[in-house]
Design a protein around this nucleic acid. Structure first.
Ligand code: DGT
Ligand code: MG
Ligand code: MG
Ligand code: ZN
Length: 585
DNA sequence: GCCGTTTTCGGCCCGACTGTTTTCAGTCG
């Protein structure tokens, strides 16, 4: 079993134990281990083999045993026993808004309800309202919740969620009652997918803000409407598709804003760690302040809060409880790469293949974004569905780039190609054609169904071709749409070190590939990365910002990102590599 | 189930909103 499978199994253990009414702290041990393993940079199997499982925080003797069983046999007897005790319908019932493990257990214990169908019937027969702790309103809400299940949205891509969030932000930000307003939660931490929109406002007069929020256009349902907190379910149109999301609004006093900002930014696990640290200091940390027995510790910024607990500021992207607090203590937090340090981007498409804009339009847009250089990467000849370039058209494009380069002042265009890595790991052009480019991005676009080991060898073979400069979208995954092909990312990253292949952080919000966890792994291994927007239009060029977010979540610094180099440095680097390639032939 | 400059038992983050209650449990953030 791999990390994600082990993580899923432990999460299921947690859910089933909860439904059996187990001790919540015990349940939390499983849930916590599940999360830790899902965010591990290295492979859980390597910990099993090396006997280092116990070194992972939150994994003790019992969990070591269970994880070892999962990794070695793919099975866990304890989980099988739990599954035998808890009907699967109970887990489905948990998805109903407002129904948690206690209520589901009560419904099962008292009315033998073990499916959505039976639950609906019981509600309609008015049996649920009579149970202790239930009532007419709860019964009605359950019925509505069952109907709502079909339209319940899962997670949403960061770019789409940002778009919905900005609509809400614009709705509120100019109200006279609003002093400060900020997007928080996973949006602020720049997670690749977002479950809901978390908005924080400071004000002396919350009521009108709450009112405006719950009556906003597109609100499908008001989930809660209180003095300091409201929740809604909204529908919005983003790029022609309907997006349904929850949104939460917290309103606090302005002097509480930094504490509320820290709280509402999360993550939950980071909050728990920070609050536990406050306890060690004899203090209490919540969304309103940092308080002791008699004293209140005034903080004007988040930085002040960290400082009060003897920690340096921790950037939102790092607040995932993946070691940031320990690193902060040791003074080994990274100085994260910033958007303004990106000098240019590679891997962009034009009308030569499947892009919407010309070379010149793309170059002008890049220049207007403040970039100093732009690299192209249209598709290669065998990718006919995307209008891949024949060697003749390659030469034509190169001539056009030469002309643009002589015309544009203070801006440099690099000649590149997104060259298909064919099924056998060979490249899609002869070496004579490959020698025409300043750089080559190697990407897999076909034959996704290969066995994992074959795919890994295919990519590794391509990385060993001296013409390859960088590897495009390593796994081919599409966020929330398609899993990547089976590939040993660890092996590819290790090979990248050996072959000095740059690994792309594909910044297209549909891809974000490498993901942030493997960025962290790449950092540990000493891999160099390059942030590319994979732009198919001028607007897409701005996607590199999403790649910067991934890099920051992966703890990456300026020096670890190739395209923070200046034009001259890039020029020198690429020309050296090209010389090595052409000399070899 | 995990963990330890309050160490091997007794804690484990803390609060808002709702609906059921008459003082609070459950769910969610
Ligand atoms: N202290 C504390 N804070 C929490 C807890 N649950 C949530 N929070 C805070 C931190 C979260 O980032 C923030 C928003 O909660 P969300 O459930 O919306 O999670 P978040 O935005 O992190 O991720 P998501 O919405 O799932 O993409 O509220 C909790 O149990 N304790
Ligand atoms: Mg959220
Ligand atoms: Mg939320
Ligand atoms: Zn591609």
């Amino acid at each position: 079993m791999d990390n994600q499978q082990v993580s899923a199994a432990l999460a299921e253990v947690g859910t089933l134990m909860e439904l059996l009414g187990e001790n919540p702290f015990k349940v939390n041990a499983y849930v916590n281990a599940s999360r830790t393993i899902s965010q591990l940079t290295d492979e859980i199997s390597s910990h099993v083999n090396k006997g280092t499982l116990g070194e992972i925080a939150g994994i003790g003797a019992t969990l070591q045993e269970k994880i070892t069983s999962l990794v070695k046999t793919g099975k866990l007897e304890f989980l099988e026993e739990l599954r035998a005790k808890v009907p699967p319908g109970l887990v489905k019932m948990l998805a109903i808004q407002g129904l948690g493990p206690k209520k589901v257990k009560a419904l099962y214990d008292l009315l033998q309800i073990d499916s959505l169908e039976k639950l609906k019937i019981a509600c309609n027969e008015n049996k649920v309202a009579d149970l202790k702790g239930f009532g007419a309103k709860t019964q009605q809400k359950i019925l509505e919740g069952i109907e709502f299940l079909g339209s319940v949205a899962g997670r949403v891509r960061l770019d789409e969620a940002s778009s919905v969030a900005n609509t809400l932000l614009n709705l509120l930000k100019d109200m006279k009652e609003v002093i400060r307003i900020e997007l928080c939660g996973s949006l602020r931490r720049r997670k690749e997918t977002v479950k809901d929109i978390d908005v924080l406002v400071s004000s002396k007069n919350p009521a009108p803000i709450m009112e405006k929020f719950v009556t906003a256009s597109g609100v499908i349902q008001v989930l809660g409407h209180g003095e300091t907190k409201s929740s809604i379910f909204v529908e919005a149109l983003v790029n022609g598709s309907r997006i349904k999301m929850q949104a939460d609004l917290r309103v606090v006093k302005d002097e509480e804003f930094p504490f509320a900002l820290a709280y509402f930014t999360g993550s939950k696990e980071h909050n728990v760690a920070m609050r536990s640290r406050a306890i060690e200091y004899g203090l209490k940390l919540n969304e309103y302040g940092l308080t002791g027995e008699k004293k209140n510790i005034a903080c004007k910024t988040e930085e002040d809060i960290y400082k009060a607990l003897d920690l340096p500021y921790i950037a939102p992207e790092l607040r995932e409880d993946t070691g940031e607090i320990n690193a902060a203590l040791k003074g080994t937090l990274p100085t994260l790469v910033e958007s303004k340090q990106i000098q240019g981007v590679f891997h962009n498409h034009t009308t030569y293949s499947d892009g919407a804009n010309t070379l010149e339009e793309m170059a002008n847009k890049a220049k207007s974004l403040g970039l100093k250089y732009l690299g192209f990467g249209d598709h290669s000849q065998s990718l006919t569905v995307a209008n891949g370039l024949s060697p003749e058209r390659v030469k034509k494009q190169i001539a056009e780039i030469d002309e643009l380069n002589s015309k544009m002042k203070g801006f440099r265009i690099f000649k590149g190609i997104e060259c298909d890595i064919l099924a056998d790991g060979s490249l899609d052009y002869d070496d004579e054609v490959l020698a025409l480019f300043d750089y080559v991005v190697g990407s897999v676009h076909t034959h996704f169904q290969m066995p994992r080991e074959e795919m890994t060898q295919r990519i590794i073979k391509a990385m060993n071709h001296p013409a390859i400069t960088m590897l495009g979208h390593l796994t081919g995954r599409l966020v929330l749409r398609r899993d990547g092909y089976a590939v040993n990312q660890e092996a590819v990253l290790q090979e990248a070190v050996k072959t000095k292949t740059l690994i792309e952080i594909n910044a297209h919000p549909m891809r974000l590939d490498l993901d942030w966890i493997h960025c962290k792994r790449a950092k540990e291994l000493g891999v160099k990365l390059v942030i590319n927007p994979d732009a198919h239009s001028t607007e897409d060029l701005e996607y590199y910002e999403y790649g910067v977010s991934v890099a920051r979540r992966g703890w990456l610094e300026k020096d670890e990102i190739f395209n923070t180099l200046t034009t001259n440095e890039v020029e020198a680097y690429l020309s050296d590599r090209r010389k090595a390639f052409t000399k070899k032939k």
